[in-house]
């Protein structure tokens, strides 16, 4: 009897679990721009102008497009990035270029942003603007849209890895785990990850629809689903055993 109830419970559980997996729907082209060379845009910081090619000649880069007025994802996104980078403990032979894709942002705005994260004196981080926003975001195939109602950009959270030759080698879209970031860092330093998932269609976050779980929960959910049969079989057999023991005792 116990096992029947368990079986029923599992049957009821399955549809609700599997609908969680529906989030996995994805768009193709997330790897768009991979192995393309970046345009040699000029980056403006409060300390002056520098060519992008000068930067990547010196060391590989992680590019992170943001805008300072962002009321939502940019802030947790940068905080997560900072936290995960320190967690990674990787050698600091690469730099993070946080650049604004909002024409209204000034180098001063970006410096304040850096200050906010206590990164203005960290040589691994560069905060700046560019006068070639369109060329750069096009090369990165970065998706953003101005939303008049909210006075905000709806945009994806993108990290683009650029190797020392100026080629985009890997893109991560959405909030990243430190494992994902590890992949990115390894790849820009010349490492090789044999495969990667395409980004999902729901990664075009509006700043108000941000769900930090999305993108990270799916693999663990998958593992959970794969563990259910073994756990379920164990429970069913134990249940039957308990019922059989009771019956044996009654018979005695």
């Amino acid at each position: 009897m116990f096992s029947r109830i368990l079986a029923a419970a599992i049957l009821i559980l399955i549809p609700s679990l599997s609908t969680l997996g529906n989030e996995a729907e994805s768009v193709m082209g997330g790897e768009s721009g991979i192995y393309q060379r970046l345009p040699d845009a000029t980056i403006h910081t409060t300390e002056g102008a520098v060519a992008l090619s000068t930067l990547y000649d010196q060391s590989p880069l992680i590019l992170a497009p943001v805008f300072t007025r962002c009321a939502g994802i940019c802030s947790p996104f940068l905080a997560t990035l900072k936290g995960n980078l320190s967690k990674l403990n990787a050698p600091a032979d690469f730099r993070v270029l946080v650049f604004s894709f909002d024409p209204e942002d000034t180098p001063e705005d970006m410096r304040e942003m850096a200050q906010h994260y206590e990164l203005e004196n960290d040589s691994q981080w560069i905060f700046g603007t560019t006068d070639q926003i369109e060329a750069l975001t096009d090369a990165l195939r970065f998706q953003s849209k101005w939303n008049e109602a909210t006075r905000q950009f709806d945009h994806e959270a993108l990290l683009a890895g650029v190797n020392a030759q100026g080629y985009i080698v890997l893109k991560l879209i959405g909030m990243q785990s430190s494992t994902d970031l590890g992949r990115l860092v390894s790849e820009i330093r010349g490492g090789f990850q044999v495969a990667f998932p395409l980004p999902k269609s729901d990664t075009l976050f509006t700043c108000f629809r941000w769900d930090p779980v999305t993108g990270k929960a799916r693999p663990s959910l998958g593992l959970l689903i794969m563990a259910i049969p073994t756990i379920g079989a164990g429970l069913m057999v134990t249940g039957i055993s308990a019922a059989a023991r009771r019956r044996r005792k009654r018979a005695e």
């Binding site: 599992i10 049957l11 399955i14 549809p15 599997s18 609908t19 997996g21 529906n22 689903i225 259910i228 049969p229 073994t230 379920g232 079989a233 069913m236 057999v237």
Partner: peptide
Amino acid sequence: IVCFITAIILLAMFFS
């Protein structure tokens, strides 16, 4: 038993 539970989950996901 593990197999058949797996099959039931797999098929339920198809039906979802």
